[in-house]
Simulated scan of single mutants.
Amino acid sequence: MSDPPQYILEGLEKQSPETLREIAQIATEMAEKKERQLEAELEDEKVADRPKDLDRDDAPISATLTTKKINGNQYYYWQWREGEKIKSEYIRPVDAK
């Protein structure tokens, strides 16, 4: 984690404990919103890159298309979360011949 800019720290030092707690809540909400936006952008990129022959209807609910490199070869997998566990389902090699 990098240190916040000095001008932000100087401004924070002048605040009351109550205001600092409010700022912390706002900062947490802003960080979560930015993370959701980044995840949505990454998902949009994955959808755009998805091969046309991979039918989304065959995928588990909430799965995203991922690739894994194993022994120098790349393979497509559906990947999703079930509770705390990440599940994967093999689809086919990336270079299907």
Results as ranks from 00 to 15, higher is better:
97 K>T: 10
58 D>F: 07
89 E>V: 00
21 R>Q: 14
26 I>E: 10
7 Y>I: 06
3 D>K: 08
67 T>S: 11
68 K>E: 15
11 G>M: 09
86 I>K: 12
9 L>R: 12
1 M>F: 04
63 A>D: 09
75 Y>H: 04
65 L>P: 02
5 P>W: 02
34 K>C: 08
56 R>H: 03
50 R>I: 00
95 D>S: 13
2 S>F: 03
19 T>P: 00
63 A>L: 09
15 Q>L: 15
76 Y>N: 01
70 I>M: 08
90 Y>I: 01
94 V>S: 05
81 R>H: 07
41 E>S: 09
23 I>H: 02
32 E>N: 14
4 P>G: 01
3 D>S: 05
14 K>V: 07
13 E>F: 04
54 L>A: 06
64 T>W: 06
67 T>H: 04
3 D>R: 07
22 E>A: 08
27 A>G: 09
46 K>S: 13
25 Q>E: 14
46 K>R: 14
31 A>N: 13
84 E>C: 01
19 T>K: 10
54 L>R: 07
33 K>F: 08
67 T>A: 10
4 P>Y: 02
15 Q>G: 02
91 I>A: 07
93 P>W: 09
11 G>I: 04
9 L>C: 04
28 T>W: 08
11 G>Y: 06
93 P>G: 06
72 G>M: 07
54 L>C: 06
31 A>K: 15
40 A>F: 04
66 T>L: 06
63 A>G: 05
82 E>S: 11
79 Q>H: 01
70 I>Y: 09
68 K>F: 05
92 R>P: 05
20 L>S: 02
45 E>N: 07
41 E>H: 06
1 M>Q: 03
44 D>T: 12
95 D>L: 11
86 I>R: 12
59 A>S: 13
88 S>C: 10
1 M>N: 03
79 Q>E: 15
9 L>K: 10
8 I>C: 02
78 W>R: 01
16 S>V: 08
23 I>W: 05
18 E>H: 13
14 K>W: 02
86 I>E: 08
1 M>R: 05
11 G>C: 07
53 D>T: 07
16 S>N: 10
80 W>D: 09
52 K>C: 02
